[in-house]
């Protein structure tokens, strides 16, 4: 079963050719937006280029927002000074990560490192809050979609937990 926190293939639609606009449309939190609204979002996202092995986010840093991979791929790594690093997921074009940081400033739960030269879009909480203030209708649409993603992920996590619990119970009772 896919990791419910980092794996987001269920939310990802098949990538279409085109610009950021087309890519944003594939991201679940923007998928309900009208073309005009997507243009508004396009105006506030940040496009960044990362070299191979360059960190996109560091585990423990304050969360600021989410990233969407336009080109290239990223590895999500959990770091531990004693146990070293553990790869949680490998994300490719169209995938997104760090979306929970749109809601609060909690420390990042993992690091993200570019596996190859990558082109990544960042959508950040300050810009999102500003959008909510200026364009409440659009902001609420994004917020609602984000809640749906988080809810779906919670449902998956619950399923995973009950499965583990069941397996544990089975093992205990022979």
């Amino acid at each position: 079963m896919e990791n419910p926190i980092w794996g987001n293939s269920i939310f990802r639609k098949k990538k279409k050719e085109g610009n950021i606009y087309a890519l944003l449309k594939q991201v679940p939190i923007f998928s309900d937006l009208k073309p005009k609204e997507l243009i508004e979002v396009e105006k506030i996202v940040h496009r960044r280029k990362y070299k191979k092995s360059e960190a996109v986010i560091h585990m423990g840093d304050p969360g600021l927002g989410m990233y969407i991979i336009v080109k290239g791929s990223v590895e999500i790594i959990e770091e531990d000074k004693k146990a070293g690093q553990k790869t949680l997921a490998k994300l490719t074009e169209g995938a997104f990560f760090g979306d929970l940081a749109l809601l609060d400033e909690s420390p990042r739960s993992a690091s993200a490192v570019a596996i190859e030269d990558s082109d990544i879009i960042g959508f950040f909480r300050p810009d999102f809050l500003d959008l909510l203030k200026r364009k409440p209708k659009l902001g609420i649409k994004v917020l609602f979609a984000l809640a749906r993603v988080v809810g779906e992920r919670l449902r998956q996590t619950n399923e995973l937990l009950s499965k583990i619990q069941e397996e544990k119970d089975k093992a205990r009772h022979g």
């Binding site: 840093d61 790594i77 531990d80 070293g84 690091s111």
Partner: peptide
Amino acid sequence: KNYRLRPSPITEESYSLEGKS
């Protein structure tokens, strides 16, 4: 105080040294 500004010993440096990509 809150952001890690130097390369992480685990991610960036060891990452490239180990040639994980």
